[in-house]
Computed example of a mutant assay.
Amino acid sequence: MSARTEDGGKPLPVLLACAAQPGAGAWQAPRLRLWHGGALVLLVLLGAGFADAAASPPRAGVLSVLVRWTPLLLRGFGFNILISFLSMGLGTLLGVALGLGLISPHGGARKLAWSLTQFFRNAPWLVLLFFAIFLIPFQLRLGGLTIPLPGWFKAVVGLSLPVMANVAEILRGAVASIPSGQWEAAESLAFSRRQQLWLVILPQCVKRMLPPWMNLYSILTTSTVLASIVGVSEVMTLASQITAAEGGRTDILAPLYGYIMLWFFAYCYPIARYTLRLERRFAVKI
């Protein structure tokens, strides 16, 4: 969709939020609803019931196992949330810098930023995680000081790379959606390009960037379980250890992983609902 300039010139591209395009006829992905969480709870309970019924000889109930290990699982889940916070913070800082490179007036900087953005946006997250694990050393030596670099730090760096690329693209799209009249008005006030960006353009971009930024955070949060593959002791790693501690019981696998999935749903569902609310509030009006 486009908006025309005041003098009737060439149409300007405008980035519209999804909520601002009613009746477009395009297929839209279904959104999370509260009944999805209820269905997930029901599946966990049914799985626990079937597992108890199939247990032979009779052993401790699945629900009692889940309750007994809940404090440990919560500790691991909290570590997942911590990794998501750190990765999102680092990725956002790097992504803003990369996004400014995408809109740089210098052609060389734009090409380099575009290449980095496309590479990290299209690379598999797990591959980037493995690269971070193997390329980052176990420790750094600064003079006589030795700084250890644990696995969770490498996981944060690995997960922040795709976040960086996506934030850069979000920033570029938000800047492109600002009407050119805003640039012209700032230029008429004798602002330099840096002043135009930081005082006029970027403040208007914040509300346009916030909904996709929150969606990206939800995706990142559910992706933190990948850290278990590279040895980080988060909730999925602890789930495997719990299974081993219970004597390798296969009957608790489905209820246990469904229980963990329910926690992720409970954490991400409010974010998804608030994101939808922000999309409606900040929808661009034409």
Rank of each mutant, 00 (worst) to 15 (best):
Leu216Cys: 02
Leu112Ile: 15
Pro22Val: 04
Leu45Val: 15
Glu187Lys: 14
Trp152Ala: 04
Gly144Ser: 06
Glu184Trp: 12
Leu116Arg: 01
Ile201Pro: 00
Leu63Glu: 07
Pro203Cys: 00
Gly107Glu: 14
Gln28Thr: 09
Gly173Met: 02
Leu74Ala: 13
Ile136Asp: 03
Gln204Gly: 07
Val235Arg: 06
Ser218Met: 10
Ala283Val: 00
Gly231His: 00
Gly247Lys: 02
Leu82Gly: 05
Lys207Val: 09
Asn80Glu: 11
Arg193Tyr: 14
Leu278Thr: 00
Glu234Pro: 04
Glu184Pro: 13
Leu129Gln: 09
Gly158Tyr: 07
Leu102Arg: 15
Gln28Asp: 12
Met214Gln: 08
Ala24Glu: 03
Gly95Phe: 07
Ala39Leu: 14
Ile219Asn: 04
Gly101Arg: 03
Ala51Tyr: 05
Leu262Trp: 13
Val156Phe: 02
Ala244Arg: 15
Pro58Leu: 13
Val225Leu: 05
Arg75Ser: 10
Gly9Ile: 00
Ala227Ile: 08
Ile229Pro: 01
Gln241Cys: 03
Leu45Ala: 15
Trp183Asp: 12
Ile83Arg: 09
Met209Ala: 12
Ile229Asn: 06
Ile229Glu: 09
Pro150Ala: 02
Ser64Tyr: 05
Val14Thr: 07
Ala48Cys: 05
Arg273Phe: 04
Arg194Ser: 14
Pro22Ala: 07
Phe131Asp: 04
Arg141Asn: 03
Ala53Gly: 11
Ile260Met: 09
Leu129Tyr: 12
Thr70Asn: 14
Lys285Gln: 10
Ile133Lys: 14
Ile178Cys: 08
His36Ala: 09
Arg4Ala: 08
Thr92Asp: 06
Ala19Gly: 08
Gln204Glu: 08
Pro148Thr: 08
Arg172His: 05
Leu220Phe: 08
Arg249Lys: 12
Leu202Pro: 02
Pro13Arg: 01
Thr146Trp: 00
Val96Ile: 15
Ile170Tyr: 12
Phe77His: 10
Leu12Tyr: 05
Thr117Lys: 10
Ser84Lys: 05
Leu220Thr: 09
Ile271Gln: 06
Ile242Thr: 11
Gly247Val: 01
Glu184Tyr: 13
Ala97Leu: 15
Gly258Pro: 09
Leu197Thr: 14
Pro150His: 11
Lys285Gly: 05
Ala165Pro: 00
Phe138Asp: 12
Pro13Val: 00
Ala39His: 01
Thr222Val: 12
Phe153Met: 01
Lys111Asn: 07
Glu246Ile: 03
Phe79Met: 13
Leu63Thr: 06
Tyr257Cys: 11
Leu149Ala: 06
Glu6Val: 09
Ser2Asn: 07
Ala39Cys: 01
Leu94Val: 09
Asn166Met: 09
Pro13Ser: 01
Thr243Tyr: 12
Ala17Cys: 07
Phe120Asp: 01
Leu278Ala: 02
Thr224Ile: 08
Leu34Met: 02
